[in-house]
């Protein structure tokens, strides 16, 4: 028991558990090339959204539609990418119909 407590205790105190917070990173850019018209439209019927850390389908639905309960629309449009609607990953490019 004591041995297991020691192991569990050590595991719980692992410093790598705390990841740095990059939510306040500011970004921008520009180019010598002219901008293409309507950069967000990629599939002709909607736009794409790139998942960032902390996102969920309902958060994206809230941001895009103003209604978190409309997350199934995004899930249905991205079933080829999303196996479990509770699990999306940073960097995933989701179609927003």
């Amino acid at each position: 028991m004591g041995i297991f407590d020691g192991i569990l205790g050590k595991k719980g105190n692992t410093p790598s558990a705390a990841k740095p917070d990059f939510s306040n990173v500011q970004s921008g850019g520009s180019s010598t090339a002219p901008a293409a018209p309507e950069p967000e439209v990629t599939n002709g019927s909607g736009k794409t959204y790139v998942v960032v850390s902390g996102d969920s389908l309902s958060k994206i639905a809230k941001r895009e539609y103003g209604d978190a309960s409309k997350w199934p629309r995004i899930y249905e449009a991205n079933k080829d990418l999303i196996k479990d609607p509770n699990l999306i990953y940073p960097g995933q490019e989701l179609k927003v119909p």
Partner: peptide, 14 residues
């Protein structure tokens, strides 16, 4: 591999 930031530009280079 923790994502810090992603930004996109759509350009029409010649």
């Amino acid at each position: 591999g923790q994502v810090v930031n992603e930004s996109t530009q759509t350009i029409a280079p010649t």
